[in-house]
Design a protein around this nucleic acid. Sequence first.
RNA 1: GGCCCGUUCGUCUAUCGGUUAGGACACAAGAUUUUCAUUCUUGGAAGAGGGGUUCGACUCCCCUACGGGCUGCCA
Length: 468
Amino acid sequence: MADCKEGMPPVVRFAPSPTGYLHVGGARTALFNFLFARHHGGRFILRIEDTDQKRYQPEALAEIFTSLKWLGLQWDEGPEAGGESGPYFQSQRTALYRRHAEELLAAGKAYRCFCSEERLASLRVEQEKVKMAQGSGYDRHCRCLGEAEIQALLAANTPHVVRLQVPDHRSVAFHDLIRGDITYDSAQLDDLVLLKSDGFPTYHLANVVDDHRMGITHVLRGDEWIASTPKHILIYEAFSWAPPIFAHMPVILAPDGGKLSKRRGAASVLDYQRAGFLPEALLNFLALLGWAPGGDREIMTLDEMVAAFTLERVQAKAAVFDETKLEWMNGVYLQGRSVDSLLPDVRSLWEKAGLPPPALADEDYLKKVISLFKERSRKVGDIAANSLYFFSDPQAYEEPAARKHFKAEALPLFDAILPALAGLQPFNHDALEGLYRRLAAELGIPAGRLIHPTRLAASGVSFGPGLF
RNA sequence: GGCCCGUUCGUCUAUCGGUUAGGACACAAGAUUUUCAUUCUUGGAAGAGGGGUUCGACUCCCCUACGGGCUGCCA
């Protein structure tokens, strides 16, 4: 019901971390944020969460931008687009996070922790031994350090982090727009780290500070964040800020039910682009993973999705990425594309397949070939790959078909066809068909006996557009 | 181990207490077609299990099972 706070247009963000390519799960999260913002006349912000120095990959950033643009998910604010709440790279906002951490320190809501990584590691080992019977996580060792002690450690330049002081036994509740009310006991929560020893904020701090400062009203993110949400609520409370509304999206799984990855179902958005999928098809397919407009509607433009989109209709259940259905849907969109709009892509695929430029000089001819193959293709790549024999003689003949049609009995048939073909005037569709039908009738055989061997000889394959 | 989330055809889903549980993809069969594809027709295919609540549960509640997430100075 209350998708929005009364009347105020929502502000949402997609906040990827540049640690790898943009996968289809991320793209779907971006899409839902986009749809939600557009549906309610709000804003869609792109923010880059590059606070992990160790996992940062420079190429990932370009991939994310390219992927979102290819899909047509234009952000209203963010890198390249600008906006009032910038900068939109968290790595450029570290002073801000540090200031906020200091604020919490001063208010006694956070504390410095000087524990070494070794101590924490052995702590975890110990807890594992006792099966984590009672409570897990940090043992709050540094909570009760005296002021003098702290000053001494600081003076000695001891590396340290800043941790949030989590209240003892408190119920922390929030309402998830997709899953309803969710409640945690704060005793379950760790005194989480806000500021790392390298001075960078953790995801939790940066995320909360930015969502607040950027005026984010709705946080729509993957459901792996559910368990972190109570921590975030506690941080909002420590700052005395009102938390945004949360909605956690279901995950997208590989066909085998496992996690989506490079080996299982591509995963990268750009892989789908390279594989010859159309952005509008991928978008439409992704929208239907976890959301349905109701009724039997499936094929929708982005605008139609915007008009129909509501979070109440988003499912809580994980969805399997069924590439077969994506292919079908891509075929539907491919049929709707004009030959002209396909020409540049197909031409470059032909070039990649090794066709020499002169062969591709006649644009009208190229368009004719594309229109011939478009209707029997599902992906852009199919058009290029299956039509090569229109530019060069076949290099090989399809095996089972060759055995079937190139039998000894077929030789006399070719003897009859070849001279007739050579003399055919004019050489066009109707004349050819007339010739074959007439020949077949004279020989007293079905036309197919003539047609199939000819097709195979000319194209090397047994399928494709009609011979004539 | 603890906490949290989830569970309708093989897959994506509709259903918001009363339906012969609908659609789509995939699959199978048939028709059309010189092949393939398209198109058309037809078919099989589902409420995890057990308890409640109710005149009546796929729908609401509880338990179990199974799947997933979190339990990091990763996001």
